[in-house]
Simulated scan of single mutants.
Amino acid sequence: MLESTRRRMLEALGIGSAAALAGCNANDAPQASDTATAGTESSMAQSTDTDRVAADPTNLPDPVDWNSPQTHEVTLTVEEVTAEIEPGVTFDYMTFDGQIPGPMVRVRQGDTVELTMENPPENAMPHNVDFHAIYATGGGAVATTAAPGSENKMRFQARYPGAYIYHCAVPNLDYHISAGMFGMILVEPEDGLPEVDRELYFGQHELYTNKGVGEEGHHGFDMDAMANEQPTYVLLNGEKYAWAAAGRGPVEVQQDETVRVFLVDGGPNYSSNFHPIGNVWSRAYRDGGLPEDQDPEEYADKNIQTMKVPPGSCMIGEMETPVPERIKLVDHALSRVARRGLMAEVDVLGEEDDDIYDPDFDGSENDGPRYG
């Protein structure tokens, strides 16, 4: 069991106020450990601690199936790891549970969460977690701040439904989030969400490094590039094209399934313009908002082509899959797709339906109206 050290953590950081500890002012605490790590670079890629940081988008909790408030014990463990952004390019990530985005926490409105935030002794920096889904100073960031080799706990009730980000919120919080420390908590309404056939979970963020896209070797973190909002990479799930065919994908679904997609935008600076190429968000929930006293299906926006997702926010979108195709999930700021590594792909497997889409149409049987 890691030692609970909140008071000693405050003393170690030299911080006298809760506001600074919650990440409101990066100048109120020593930054030596952050700066030392951020400046690490090498002409050679470094050995990796893990095969991947990209969270499996199909690995998320099952939908809520209980009808009265429950208490959940949740542990988030900080893992500082070296991994590849793309082959031959390594980076020192900071993660919750070794993955980007961090594990989805899924509860029902009115449930209680007993959270433990662990910071193992092999880590170099202090960390905490701020949940946008709770009423608490710093979203719980003050209560959970832990030095390496310690842990802290908090308990909260999830009182309002929706999909919300959680993220590290120590001083230099933008660096920690960029390096991977963010995830989603989903608070389902008391009556749950409409049933779907399949769910996927993604997280978008920027990486600011001291080398160019694809430049081999170890990339250190570039604080100036972050301050100027000039990222090297813009990514889904922490790696270049992590779940596209060029990476670990594509994800496979079946024809005629309804697929629900969750996106959390960690930022720290860029909004996402989330779009499924070759499809549409048949139902979409802007900023992850879910109603308390209305059927979510009636509350949803319908047939939305592109969802704006600000940094520090989420979205929930659903797709129908009537024909076999490859759906590309992208930020429609398309230079991020073509130049900076952001794309996932979903293959719909099934039989062609020429009435909906005929890729081999030659016009010989067309007796309908013509345009143009």
Results as ranks from 00 to 15, higher is better:
247 G>F: 01
298 E>M: 04
103 P>C: 08
143 A>N: 10
112 T>L: 02
300 A>W: 04
298 E>S: 07
332 H>M: 05
2 L>T: 09
227 A>H: 12
13 L>F: 11
52 R>W: 06
260 R>N: 09
212 G>D: 01
221 F>I: 06
198 R>F: 13
352 E>P: 09
48 T>R: 05
75 T>M: 10
141 A>T: 02
138 G>P: 09
69 P>T: 11
316 I>R: 00
10 L>Y: 14
219 H>T: 01
40 T>Q: 10
39 G>M: 14
179 A>Y: 00
298 E>R: 07
245 A>Q: 07
372 G>E: 12
71 T>F: 07
63 P>G: 14
104 M>F: 12
332 H>I: 03
17 S>H: 15
188 E>R: 08
243 W>L: 11
151 E>D: 11
133 A>Q: 06
90 T>E: 00
230 Q>D: 13
11 E>S: 13
47 S>F: 06
92 D>N: 06
160 Y>D: 03
323 V>Y: 05
283 R>C: 04
95 T>A: 07
18 A>K: 13
313 S>N: 08
1 M>A: 09
224 D>I: 08
52 R>N: 07
139 G>C: 11
63 P>F: 10
147 A>H: 04
257 E>R: 02
293 D>I: 01
59 N>I: 14
83 A>R: 03
270 Y>S: 13
94 M>C: 11
213 V>S: 00
321 T>D: 03
278 G>C: 06
